[in-house]
Amino acid sequence: MRRHGVLIPNYVPGDSIVHRTPLWLKFLLVAACGLASFLVVDWMVSAAVLAVMCGLFLLTGAGVERLARSVWLVTPILAAIGAVQWWQLGGPTAARIVLNVLVCVVAAAVLTVTTPVQALLDGVVALSRPFKRLGADPERFALTIAIMLRSLPFIAGAFSDVRDSARARGLERNPRALVLPVFITTVAYARQTGDALAARGLGEPAD
């Protein structure tokens, strides 16, 4: 297994002002960016917001390289979307849509790069505590989220391995033979993870 283009970058220890900002405020920022991307109609506003987000990211001291890496993964999709939108709706609209996606990506990166996973988990646990009465189990919920985030690079890697092996063997005619290994690996990985959690006494329902 190898590390794969990380859409959501890992925590980078630091002492910047962004690191010291309370988690709820950073979370609000991410949520606001998600919402704003559908309210903003001027691409120049989007560009300005994106510049601010990139500024915040660099302020954390995580570096340009990490920023580029987290954006790099969405570029193929954005290029495709951008091209089609340009053709259908014109330049400014295409620019706005592409920039808004980038805002979301960078905002999420600012959050994860300055927050250790354990702190995120504590945040999720705190947020979901009100639902405890409805039978929710905040600790297990938070654990599930952590496992999901941890699995993303692995699964993305499995998908790209498929592309590589298809290329290596020459284009595979049978789509089943092409994609099945990804899903077998995925399920086996899920099982292994479940076993590892069980063996460590994590993720079992509380009595």
Partner: peptide, 23 residues
């Protein structure tokens, strides 16, 4: 387990050990 990668559930060592201690 034989393969530590199937056992370590967090991205860094510190976080994995902290996860063990959460309970």
């Amino acid at each position: 387990f034989t393969d530590p990668l199937s056992q370590l559930v967090m991205p860094t060592g510190r976080e994995d050990v902290e996860l063990s201690l959460r309970r």
